[in-house]
Amino acid sequence: MLRLAIALSLVLPALCQTAPTSFVLVGDSTTANGTTPNSGGWGNGFCGSTVTSTPSSLAPGTPCINTAHNGATTGSFVADGFWDISLAAIRGEVAKGRRTLVTIQFGHNDMKIAPPESMGQNLTMMVQQIRALKAEPVLVTSLTRRDFNNDGTINDSLGPWADQTILISQQQNTHLLDLHAASITYVEAIGPDPAHRLNRTPDDNTHLNNNGTIVFGRMVADLMNASFPNQLPIIANPALTFNITHGIPSF
């Protein structure tokens, strides 16, 4: 019996590492694909894109379906039918017997129309519906805007919405990727000029160009790896990870 227990302890972690995994991304323009005006998020840097020649952070053949939409709030994402598209993608991956992780990142547009608690109610509904489909919700706090104060710190208008995401994660016992805190730490470390080189356009401190999506897509991948150690088909990028963790510009 002891030998069997030892054998299982060696085999089960290996099975977890090789479990077929799919990703579905839900969110606003800071998650969405594309680098046209008023768009450009970290999605391409995480999933990869043949259109923009952006390398994936995932092992070849890993499904990564980005359903995020420009301008969306948690409310409009549902009301405009994009949530139905997300749910259909989730159902499709679960039906294939794949472990399906669903990231949810909002806040940039919710903050314009309603208090954080309103977003929190919508996030709770999303989490519960994802679990009802036998998928795994992963809440992600908002990517920071690269809006600097004169002293080099970030002028953080998104903090209350990031805090609300953390609260819902605690209440619903989900995995959490604190992209908000990680991205603030990084851009404050590299400073305004290198941070703005990641902008979609020179005066767009919200959306990302191709270099920006590579940097923050890797940041999400590393946060995901930390939250799910030795479980996910994420490809290492030691050089980029070193720069991110040491506050060094890559572009």
Rank of each mutant, 00 (worst) to 15 (best):
4 L>F: 14
9 S>Q: 07
16 C>A: 15
20 P>I: 14
23 F>Y: 03
24 V>S: 04
24 V>R: 01
26 V>Y: 00
26 V>P: 02
28 D>Y: 04
28 D>M: 04
30 T>N: 03
31 T>Q: 02
37 P>S: 09
38 N>D: 07
42 W>N: 04
44 N>G: 12
46 F>I: 10
54 T>P: 00
56 S>L: 06
57 S>K: 08
57 S>H: 03
59 A>M: 07
64 C>H: 08
68 A>E: 02
69 H>T: 12
73 T>H: 00
73 T>A: 02
75 G>H: 03
75 G>I: 06
76 S>Q: 04
77 F>S: 06
78 V>H: 00
79 A>D: 13
81 G>P: 15
87 L>I: 11
88 A>M: 07
89 A>H: 05
93 E>R: 13
94 V>T: 11
95 A>M: 10
96 K>S: 09
98 R>V: 07
98 R>H: 15
103 T>N: 04
104 I>N: 00
108 H>M: 07
108 H>Y: 03
109 N>F: 03
110 D>F: 03
111 M>H: 11
112 K>Y: 01
114 A>I: 09
115 P>M: 10
125 M>Y: 10
126 M>H: 02
128 Q>N: 14
132 A>T: 10
133 L>D: 11
136 E>W: 09
137 P>Y: 11
137 P>Q: 10
139 L>C: 06
139 L>A: 02
141 T>K: 08
143 L>Q: 09
146 R>S: 03
152 G>S: 11
158 L>G: 02
159 G>W: 05
160 P>W: 12
162 A>V: 13
164 Q>F: 04
165 T>Y: 01
166 I>D: 01
168 I>E: 00
169 S>G: 15
173 N>K: 15
173 N>R: 14
174 T>D: 05
175 H>S: 14
176 L>F: 10
177 L>C: 12
181 A>W: 05
182 A>E: 12
183 S>N: 07
184 I>K: 10
190 I>R: 05
191 G>V: 12
192 P>T: 15
194 P>L: 09
197 R>Y: 02
197 R>Q: 12
198 L>R: 00
198 L>F: 01
201 T>A: 08
210 N>M: 03
210 N>C: 00
213 T>E: 04
221 A>F: 01
223 L>C: 06
230 N>H: 14
231 Q>Y: 07
233 P>E: 08
236 A>F: 06
248 I>H: 08
248 I>G: 02
